[in-house]
Simulated scan of single mutants.
Amino acid sequence: MSTTGLGSLPGDEIREWTKVLLEAVDIPFLAELPSRPYGDMLSRAVAVLNELAADLQPAGWRLTGGGDPRASLDQRRARSLLAEDLDALEELADGYTGPLKLQLTGPWTLASTVELPRGDKVLADHGARRDLAQTLALGLSDHVAEVRRRVPGAEVVVQIDEPGLPAVLAGAVPTASGWSKHRSVDGPGAVELLSLVTTQAPTVIHCCAARPPIEVFTKSGAAGVAVDISLLNNAAWDQIAIAAEAGTTLYAGLIPTTGALPNEEQAAGPLVRRWRELGLDPELLKKVVITPACGLAASPSPADARSRLELLRRTADAVAEAAENS
């Protein structure tokens, strides 16, 4: 069984975290440190948008007119920070071979968060949200190629973060006025744009919701789905079971991001129990990747976050033992 994290971590020391991640988890990843200016998940995505310009307003990121990315000082700063992080990764991962994960905000979460030049969300404009998704896919392609160049032994895995997609599908994203909601997007429409960003590398789509749209993720070409096990309702588990039996890898969020740490048996228990209740093959359980419930940026300290990452391996061993005994 493998372990990994879901992207965000506390603190601002990218070099220290890169060293830790190359040792602490089976699938190291390029950390997101949102406590730094331009270090959050949205800024990371804006940094890879090579053909769209955006600037940072008090309300968040907004696309700008003219189509010249060089016009945005904020975007250049976000790109500079990403380049610094890649420099650290290249140096510290010298000679590394194996899986290496990159995280990027997905097209639907980006469209429901980033504003158009006139002020409403990109989600409001069908053409604009497709342009954004296409540009994101092109930027991701360049990003993946850059990481492969810097770390030649890396087997790149891409994690697409879509925390906003359930609200998009439900028609629950407020309009600029706040008096109404944007029209809901249907499943095929959601698949269409997600499919643009699942072709650059093996892709896992992450969504912490009680009922993440697993079917949308798998139909878009995702090889894996990352979820918070503690939040899943029965309908979500039914979709997880179907996906697992079809060969989709489950990234199971078992370690809480804050609060008291469980022991490994307590952390493994909810996954193992539900797996048995659903009558799923124990051999499939051995293929699950163990993760924290979500990103660890809310952890009170880097030391606390590191303890949670260290618990991943012990939890994976407990899950593997339970699978052997099933």
Rank of each mutant, 00 (worst) to 15 (best):
W237T: 01
L132A: 07
A244I: 13
P270Y: 04
L82K: 04
L138W: 13
S307H: 13
A78H: 04
N233L: 10
Q57Y: 14
R129I: 04
T113I: 07
L42D: 00
N325H: 14
C294P: 01
C294G: 06
R44S: 09
V225I: 15
A24G: 01
S112Y: 11
D317I: 14
G224K: 11
S112M: 09
G189F: 02
G295D: 01
A226Q: 03
A267Q: 02
G60A: 09
V185T: 02
P174G: 06
L285W: 10
V204I: 14
A323F: 01
P10N: 03
S2T: 06
S326H: 08
E23A: 13
I240M: 14
G139H: 05
L254A: 08
R62S: 11
Q75T: 05
S2M: 15
K101C: 02
T198M: 06
D12G: 10
R274F: 05
G11C: 11
A235I: 09
G127T: 15
V197K: 10
A45L: 14
K101L: 05
I205W: 12
V216F: 06
Y38M: 08
L138N: 13
I160W: 10
W275A: 02
D125N: 11
A71S: 11
P256K: 13
E283L: 11
T109S: 14
P302L: 08
A45M: 14
A223H: 12
L280P: 01
C207Y: 09
V225C: 07
P37V: 04
D125T: 03
K219V: 00
Q159F: 08
A320F: 13
D40W: 09
W237R: 03
A124Q: 04
K181R: 14
Y251F: 15
E265M: 10
L49I: 07
L136Q: 11
R308S: 05
A235F: 11
T175L: 12
G224C: 09
P262F: 15
L42T: 13
A320D: 10
E16L: 15
R211P: 00
